[in-house]
Design a protein around this nucleic acid. Structure first.
Length: 814
DNA sequence: AGCACGCCGACT
DNA sequence: GTCGGCGTGCTC
């Protein structure tokens, strides 16, 4: 055990070899954080990955400078998970490390040093640099590594620090411990409640000349009676009762009331009534039993329940079982905005044992959750995909809610992994189980269930045996031909919306295209307005009166005349959600019509405000993009209309039909949740399209049979394994040549039928980078072999210096 | 990744 | 004559 392989927070292949100094040998553990120097002067926090005794060839390993933890900060199972991720998704361990660790747990040259307390320094034994550093530390308590460069030559820095640490004169300042202090919050309570209650009349009498004090005391008493056991937050209490601090101070000095402090919990404690466990319906009970059985047979579960069937109730039941068995639960959601409802319910039950983790937390908050997970304080963790990387010690259950959601595998941030599949693996490494839940499972998950790789548990009925909405397909061609249409709507849909408004019911209209119109075209010369960064037409947004590129975010003024031929005849083509909104507002002038899309929700609290407005029933019609399909569970929505349903299918993506099915079904699920009188109207030029027909029949089995047949016919997942490689460079010829070269190398090793491309990406230029794609369809059998040939090909391209600067992004299971 | 090194154009 | 552009190479 002379050497350690260390993971560094850099996007570099593999791990790095360091020597373990003899005095660390009995303390160092796999999963510990260590301080090492890399590239001479830079210092990094690394993770111990492995130990070994093989003397490396070709370089002299450096020593590990110091250990940052007393015990492993990363559990073994997590490290196994990292290793799997990096092998499966062809990404570097360093990338995973960077992505998954809060910044303050992986300090680099920003790491601070300090003198050890109560040491006497034998200056006569120090060299000049060591002396400088000690003197500097005597003047200022903390110095970071970069600052030391000012007075010690770069080459000598690490040596100096290391020698002083060895001499026990200085130590690494655990900034995390220092800067991270949970905030303390003041609470109020009666000092001696029993006594006060007993002699209340006398006390009140004694306070008769101080009405504010009287009021305050009674108020606290009332709270303690009504919400026994729930802490009373001082600031909130004073604000609500409009009390000043003066009467409170007097009460405290009179020893009636006391102020006490508790660590602030980022999740506010639920202070409403605690709800008793809801009774499961017979169907939910059966589902729970089926899940237990599957778990007993070491099987994971696909919980396939129609919208409003109460999947959450089943989750809660299994979560409770897991927690009472003493194990931890991870509840994954595709995005934070959907957490509201589930958190409210879990809060009541688990209080402080509930944690919350997502991209929008500050670093401090992340570290807090990290520690609580590590030391077992948190038993139930609700989070988005990055919550997979918390240091769980005993993960018994992972729930992946809305498992079909594409937010589980964003294309924008590396490492590119699918959180749903990763969750299955993570559960596996911990010896835990996973539930994938959805009303519209992904074709891949459905296939797993079909092949009995995971158990298929179904909930076929809506909660309370409420009927599923009636789906009506409207042949829009016919409506137009028979003059029964106005603009983008058939008269039937308009009439139905009016009918709903008369009944004081609400309507949702789905149109999944942002902006007002997606092309502005010159009538005389055919000019269209392209984004200067991307090979994409700019979309006109009437509301903000500007042109926007939906890919890079660039904005431009709307041209008044054609920039090429100066003609003023500019045509608007393509219908966006703003236009649908405008149209409905015009057709129904007395109705309250609102719009919900990323553009209108950008302002702070815009979402909350609109949410409330809908909840209060002030909104009659809500027009929106796919955003309206998530998290809007209102009782009063009875009608869902999709005026241009075909646009959902005309996307060049082999998952277009699956997505269309999921989106339509999800948004339909908003209609008639309680009444059972929901109605869905789909306008299309292809009324015979199987996806629309099967949605109308509510026959999900047939939908998946259809989707799977298509996938099999055209050789797409789950029948093959798909890897997409995207090659990007700011010079088109270079990206082109590099992709051609990679293509030829791949063809050297792989059969021709496995390789498609290289071709220009559907968006040939994005953010000033030209991009080309190569699609690999690899057989499931011997996949590992094929994949290693892909890796070999990539390595060969990597060896060409001219292509080093070309970015190569690899999407596995794209 | 990120940083130093090294080779060619536009400037005081 | 120099400053600085980014192509290239290397890091345990």
């Amino acid at each position: 055990m002379n050497f350690a392989q260390i993971i560094l927070p850099l996007n570099l292949k593999g791990t790095f070899t360091y020597k373990i100094p003899s005095d660390f040998k009995d303390k160092i553990e796999v999963g510990m954080r260590v301080l090492v120097s890399f590239r001479g002067k830079k210092i990094y926090t690394g993770i111990v990955f492995q130990f070994h005794d093989e003397e490396p060839e070709g370089f002299l390993p450096k020593d590990i400078i110091s250990l940052l933890d007393d015990a492993a900060i990363m559990p073994q199972s997590q490290l196994q998970f990292w290793q799997w991720l990096s092998e499966y998704y062809l990404c570097n361990l360093g990338e995973i490390y960077r992505f998954s660790f809060p910044a303050s747990l992986k300090l680099e040259s920003e790491t601070y040093l300090k003198l050890k307390p109560y040491v006497s320094v034998a200056f006569e034994n120090l060299d000049v640099h060591e002396m400088h550093l000690i003197h500097a530390l005597e003047v200022r308590q903390l110095i970071n590594v970069t600052e030391i460069e000012a007075f010690i030559p770069k080459k000598e820095i690490v040596k100096t620090i290391k020698s002083l640490i060895d001499l026990q004169y200085i130590e690494i300042d655990e900034k995390i411990a220092e800067t991270y202090k949970a905030k303390e919050v003041a609470y109020l309570r009666l000092k001696n409640p029993a006594e006060i209650r007993a002699s209340l009349p006398e006390i009140l009498l004694s306070l008769k000349r101080s009405p504010r004090q009287q009021e305050l005391l009674l108020s606290i008493l009332e709270h303690e009676t009504e919400f026994a056991g729930i802490p009373l937050k001082k600031s909130q209490f004073l604000d609500q009762g409009n009390f000043g601090t003066a009467p409170l101070k007097t009460l405290i000095s009179k020893n009636w009331v006391e102020e006490y402090f508790m660590q602030k919990d980022r999740i506010e404690l639920y202070d409403g009534e605690t709800e008793s466990r809801e009774q499961l319906t017979p169907e939910q009970q059966t589902a729970t039993k089926e899940i237990e059985t599957a778990f007993g047979q070491n099987q994971n579960v696909l919980l396939h329940g129609v919208t409003s069937s109460g999947k959450t109730h089943v989750y809660l039941e299994i979560i409770e079982q897991t927690v009472s068995a003493g194990r931890t639960v991870l509840f994954l959601l595709p995005e934070i905005s959907l957490t509201k409802q589930i958190v409210q319910r879990l809060e009541k039950k688990y209080g402080r044992q509930l944690g919350f983790y997502h991209q929008k937390l500050s670093d401090f908050e992340r570290v807090e959750v990290w520690r609580k997970v590590r030391n077992g304080e948190i038993k139930v963790l609700v989070g988005t995909r990055n919550a997979l990387f918390l240091p769980y010690s005993d993960l018994g259950l992972i729930v992946v809610d809305e498992e079909h959601d594409s937010a589980y595998k964003p294309r924008e941030v590396s490492p590119f992994f699918n959180a749903r599949d990763a969750a299955l693996m993570l559960a596996n490494f911990y010896g835990g189980r996973a539930i994938l839940g959805s009303a519209t499972p992904s074709v891949e998950s459905y296939f797993l269930a079909l092949k009995n790789k995971i158990a298929h548990v179904k909930l076929r009925h809506r909660f309370g045996n409420v009927n599923l909405p009636v789906v009506q397909i409207i042949n829009f061609k016919e409506a137009q031909d028979s003059k029964k249409s106005v603009g983008n709507f058939s008269l039937g849909v308009i009439d139905e919306i009016k009918k709903q408004i008369d009944r004081h019911k609400q309507t949702m209209i789905l149109h999944n295209r942002r902006g007002y119109s997606n092309v502005i075209e010159c009538e005389s010369c055919g000019y269209v307005n392209y984004c200067s960064n991307c090979d994409v037409v700019m979309t006109f947004h009437k509301f903000s009166n500007e042109m926007k590129c939906h890919y890079c975010g660039q904005k431009a003024a709307k041209p008044k005349a054609c920039p090429r031929c100066n003609s003023a005849n500019l045509n608007l083509r393509g219908v966006g959600v703003e236009q649908i909104h405008e149209e409905i507002s015009r057709l129904l002038p007395d109705a309250e019509v609102d719009r919900m899309d990323v553009d209108s929700m950008r302002k702070k609290f815009a979402y909350e405000k609109l949410y409330e407005k809908i909840e209060e029933g002030e909104t009659d019609v809500l027009v929106g993009t796919q955003m309206i399909s998530k998290g809007l569970d209102f009782e009063n929505i009875e009608l869902v209309a999709i005026p241009k349903a075909d646009s959902l299918l005309y996307v060049q993506d082999f998952r277009a039909e699956e997505r269309a099915y999921q989106l339509i079904t999800q948004v339909s699920g908003r209609a008639g949740r309680v009444s059972g009188e929901g109605k869905v109207m789909i306008q299309t030029y292809n009324p015979e399209h199987p996806v629309f027909k099967l949605i109308a029949e509510h026959d999900s089995t047939e939908v998946y049979t259809h989707l799977l047949a298509e996938r099999q016919k055209f050789h797409y997942p789950p029948f093959v394994k798909l890897i997409m490689i995207e090659i990007k460079h700011r010079r088109e010829d270079k990206a082109d040549r590099c992709s051609q070269f990679l293509g030829s190398v791949l063809r050297k090793y792989l059969p021709e039928e496995c390789i498609l491309g290289p071709e220009k990406s559907p968006i040939a230029k994005l953010n000033l980078l030209y991009q080309y794609q190569i699609w690999l369809k690899l057989p499931r059998k011997n996949y590992a072999e094929y994949k290693s040939l892909v890796m070999k090909s990539l390595d060969e391209v990597e060896d060409i210096p001219a292509y080093k600067s070309v970015k190569k992004l690899i999407f596995v299971d794209f």
